[in-house]
Design a protein around this nucleic acid. Structure first.
Lengths: 235, 235
DNA sequence: ATACGTCCGTTCGCTGGCGTACAGAGCGAC
DNA sequence: GTCGCTCTGTACGCCAGCGAACGGACGTAT
């Protein structure tokens, strides 16, 4: 279930490009569908296409030994999936999983490379985005290590809302547990605590954010820190 | 106290550059000293110089709220300090702290940028290094989340040995605790367990690796994974 | 020799999260 | 309506790591 609608959905990176570059990049093509639970990149595999989401959101997941796994990044309308291509490596270090149905511009890797070679502004923009991603990654590392599940959950919900541009999305406790690297029960108790405080509402995999101010207060500082960095670097 | 000596110490990145680029980059200059406990970059500050260590090692530390902090990266003779410059951002996202005394080539940021503009191979090389750093960062995130202190300690010691090119270095339990994001007592018990198994020896801040095979077995897979990635990408 | 600072060892109670297991509740298919 | 599946709630024992505190050992300076 997609969700709320806002007038002009565009990918923020593409929107920041010079028009001619943007035109050359995505040309006449139409955005593709991002289907729930679809794996766009598998860890270790060769990347053929990169994606610039318009809505929906994509989780970047690192597989660990055993069943353990952990989400280390989140890509939505503010970013791009497949940054390693910018660095000239077309092997994906992470698994990219569509968590929120939506649409995205898809660009062939070779084509992107050609455009990047010719356009300094495009290189600069994507490099800056990469820098942001890097800082978010370190922030995630800290967060995962030190913060309580409840605060981390609140942060995740807010980040997702921003990226998907929707206050309501489909995620079960079980999936959240995978993302946060904790047990499902841990998510259940954290989520029910947030629900009791009327910050969110959920039922059978549908989560709505009721009070984002309150949720931000319940989240760890990492959320604010990430936003600040994005604003500062991408401005 | 530096430590063991090996014949031709060079920075691996510089060694991989075309000779004329390397010459242009570091010219006639001499390597500078890296002094123990010196802060080369402060988080949020402007980066003036980048460093290519020959020996010694530098910790990349992210400050969290409170006293909590966490090492998210380690730079030695295999890499470079100040990668964000490659991305066109001269604000350091992390604190860079000299942990192992040594020497390094220091390069002015503006100069590096000019060289990078002209040299495709240099860009490609540093981009690949950045990719490696990125994967190591995600690996660290996993490690920090899921693995036991003892295994993480073993990994840290091995990584440090590789970067500093020395089997012996000066680090107190207290500093290790900061790096690993745990209590000092946690380090003490993990270290003493390793020492009992004759894998390491330590006394008053001097740590020696006695049996690196055994230590590798005690470490989590992250160590091997990191090495593998480095070899694959930088080869 | 003494005094002080650094570094390491150990202990105690506490708790957040783990692994596991089971039970109810909603929803769709038939 | 009933069955089966998915999703959520709750409970129980367990443990790694936490915070705090104290004591001893080693070096170095005076």
């Amino acid at each position: 279930m997609p969700t709320t609608k806002r007038p002009p959905p565009d990918n923020l990176l593409l929107a920041a490009l010079p028009v001619e570059v943007r035109r050359r990049l995505i040309g006449e093509s139409a955005p593709v569908e991002l289907n729930f639970a679809e794996t766009l990149h598998e860890s270790g595999d060769t990347i053929r296409d990169v994606y610039f989401p318009l809505n929906g959101f994509i989780s970047l997941i690192t597989p660990a030994d055993g069943r353990a796994q952990l989400e280390v990044g989140l890509v939505g309308s503010e970013g791009m999936l497949g940054v390693s291509v910018i660095l000239g490596v077309d092997t994906s270090p992470l698994r990219a999983l569509v968590q929120g149905t939506g649409t995205a511009w898809r660009v062939d890797v070779a084509h992107l490379s050609r455009v990047l070679e010719d356009s300094g502004p495009a290189r600069a923009l994507l490099n800056r985005y990469l820098y942001v991603l890097l800082t978010q990654l370190t922030q995630s590392a800290i967060c995962t290590r030190f913060h309580l599940v409840e605060a981390r959950l609140a942060r995740w919900l807010l980040m997702t809302r921003d990226r998907a541009r929707a206050n309501r999305f489909h995620v079960t406790h079980e999936f959240l547990a995978y993302m946060l690297g904790v047990r499902r029960v841990g998510v259940t108790s954290a989520a029910s605590a947030l629900q009791k405080r009327k910050l969110i509402h959920y039922a059978r995999g549908d989560i709505s954010i009721l009070n984002s101010r309150g949720l931000a207060a319940a989240a760890c500082k990492c959320y604010a820190a990430d936003r600040k960095t994005y604003a500062r670097i991408m401005a």
